[in-house]
């Protein structure tokens, strides 16, 4: 479904070169929900932009649905961290969700239906005509998620989407992602710096090292599929996974990395 092979990214300008990603390879199966967690400065956003086709890798590559990524793939949607900057402030909520659909060849009635359903799916009704900046941060991020959902992607990339909302809203949005993922059977790659969030959301958690980034470990999350904030987070297994990933991140921060090969 989604394959990253030997991806390397070096930023070069006249004065210096920075190796952001050294060598990252992994696969995400169809319909999987995989979290990528790493310390700040782990090149998470760089990796995600390479996968999204927004940034060209220095070496290696990304394959989505058997097609090498050279630009943004058609069946992919990205939700960015900065909801305030990823929504068009001059457009209503409705028009924000509608704009990408206008690029798709489909009857107008179908577009309207997709917008309506997507806004309903993220619990946003009655704000269609509002401007994004008239809404709270959590609601704005819901609009961005609705826009991604309406686009009917096969792959949904999320770049620390809840890093800028308050804790309560964040828990609600995490549950929303689980619900949408299960209902839409979409493949989700979720980047975060929050260990708890990665364990709570993911079927797998990939732990990144510090830049130049490699993957430290690919952790399978063997928690039941039905997850609730209250019960899942108080399970003994949740604590173990959390502790394990936490210690990996600590190692990453100290500069430890897995032996090459």
């Amino acid at each position: 479904m989604l394959e990253v092979k030997g991806l390397r990214k070096v930023y070069e300008d006249t004065s210096r070169t920075v190796e952001a990603i050294r060598d990252v390879s992994f696969c995400v199966g169809e319909g999987e929900l995989v979290c990528i967690v790493g310390p700040s400065g782990a090149g998470k956003t760089t990796l995600l932009k390479c996968i999204a086709g927004l940034l060209a890798p220095t070496a290696g590559g990304v394959i989505v649905e058997a097609t090498p990524v050279v630009g943004p793939p058609p069946a992919m949607a990205v939700v960015f961290q900065e909801y305030g900057r990823s929504l068009f402030p001059w457009m209503s909520v409705h028009d924000n969700v509608m704009l990408p659909l206008k690029q798709k060849n489909m009857p107008a009635a179908r577009r309207e239906e997709l917008v309506r359903d997507a806004l309903a799916a993220v619990d946003l009704k009655g704000v269609e005509s509002a401007y994004p900046w008239q809404l709270s941060g959590g609601m704005q991020q819901r609009v961005a998620i609705a826009r991604a959902v309406a686009y009917e992607p096969h792959v949904l990339l999320m770049d620390e989407p809840f890093a800028a909302v308050d804790a309560q809203t964040r828990a609600d949005l995490e549950d929303l992602i689980r619900v949408l993922w299960r209902r839409l059977r979409v493949t989700v790659l979720f980047v975060t710096h929050d260990i708890d969030e990665s364990v709570y959301l993911g079927q797998r958690v990939m732990v990144m090292s510090q830049a130049p980034t490699v993957i430290m470990e690919d952790v399978a999350v063997d928690l039941p599929d039905e997850r609730t904030q209250l019960e899942t987070r108080s399970m003994a297994r949740f604590g173990e996974l959390r502790k394990h990933i936490y210690s990996q991140i600590q190692l990453a921060k100290q500069g430890w990395r897995p032996p090459a090969g």
Binding site: M76, F80, R85, F88
Partner: peptide, 26 residues
Amino acid sequence: DEVLAETVRSYRIGRFARLWHFTLPG
């Protein structure tokens, strides 16, 4: 805005729509 520009790109919004819905209003 750079993030908005990346949003426009990632949704593969065409040249004319980009000019009319992003560049000019922005």
